[in-house]
């Protein structure tokens, strides 16, 4: 027996209709599974411990829906982010071997509709740039672009669809007073959240220029940072002689944190001896948020000291 379309992709409208049309009620079994689902996401488990027999479709769908309601109730950005990444990866693992028909159906739902142009598989530019992962390979500038289309290959379409699922998962409608059972299990869930998921970074405010403060703040709030932002932040902190462990712990706040990858990337930054990008570059990446006129974020300290000097000499 195969998993149904809805079980594989519980975020689709088809799945939603199934749940709404059934007499499914929240019970301990579903809630237990929902908690497991979030915890597995948190641990970054590749194989899901909660995977059910295909015939348990409604429990599968119910546990997904219940997990979403708990996350909406808890308003915990870190949890939501991790859950979004895990669900997106889960969906894409199904997509890779799914039928063309199902992929088309899912693409329609997610707003990713490949077509053909001059004999090549393409996506409309607007769809492509809305869901392309922020990595160099996917930058529009290196792609075949013509007449409003971008050439893509099938695995790339699936990667974009994964990103679309992640974005969809991050949007939660606020829940004020959910059923009691949701509240109970939300409490239980929070007990299971590993303590190291809590922020471990402290910098005195004003130590860093506004752009870096903003990135740190986003990391603190468990928001995802794009590739350039991560890179700028890592190079900045390492240039400031912040220890590798501390930089690593800051990146552990990001929703798609992967210990091995982060370690590799940070070591790469050190090994290659990357230097801090100039303010002009940060401006082009959209990271610059103020007009400090310091040329490079590393000049911030000097600027602040100058201000202090001028202030004390004028008063």
């Amino acid at each position: 027996m195969e998993f149904s379309f809805s079980s594989k992709y519980p975020f689709t409208s088809e799945a939603k209709q199934k749940v709404e049309g059934s007499s499914l009620e929240l019970n301990d079994e579903i809630m237990e599974r929902a908690v497991q689902r979030v915890v597995a996401a948190l641990k970054g488990e590749k194989e899901h411990a909660y995977r059910l027999h295909p015939s348990d479709e409604l429990i599968e769908l119910g546990s997904y829906a219940a997990a979403r309601v708990m996350l909406a109730y808890l308003k915990n950005r870190f949890l939501t982010g991790r859950f979004a990444v895990a669900e997106a990866k889960r969906a894409s693992s199904f997509m890779r071997s799914d039928s063309e028909e199902n992929i088309r159906k899912l693409g329609d739902e997610l707003g990713i509709k490949p077509t053909e142009f001059e004999g090549r598989m393409v996506l409309p530019v607007s769809q492509y740039v809305s869901f392309s992962p922020r990595s160099v390979d996917y930058r529009l500038i290196f792609r075949n672009v013509a007449k409003g289309f971008v050439e893509v290959k099938r695995p790339e379409v699936i990667r974009l669809m994964e990103e679309a699922v992640r974005i969809r998962m991050e949007a939660l409608k606020p829940v004020q007073s959910p059923p009691k059972i949701i509240q109970e299990y939300s409490k239980k869930l929070m007990v299971l959240v590993p303590k190291e998921a809590v922020m471990k970074m402290s910098f005195k405010e004003g130590d860093n220029p506004p752009c870096i403060e903003k990135l740190l703040e986003q990391a603190r709030a468990h928001q995802n940072l794009n590739h350039q932002a991560r890179w700028a932040l890592a190079v900045y902190l390492l240039s400031k002689n912040v220890s590798m462990e501390k930089v690593h712990s800051i990146f552990s706040n990001l929703p798609d944190y992967d210990e091995k990858k982060t370690k590799y990337q940070l070591e790469h930054v050190v090994k290659r001896g990357y230097t801090m990008p100039a303010c002009a570059t940060l401006l082009s990446y959209g990271i610059c948020v103020a007009d400090c006129r310091i040329g490079s974020p590393l000049n911030w300290k000097g600027k602040v000291e100058n201000w202090k000097k001028r202030k004390s000499s004028s008063s």
Binding site: V129, S130, S132, L140, G286
Partner: peptide, 11 residues
């Protein structure tokens, strides 16, 4: 299009 998507086009 959101800001990030617009940036890809402007870049």
């Amino acid at each position: 299009l959101e800001g990030d998507a617009r940036r890809e086009i402007s870049d």
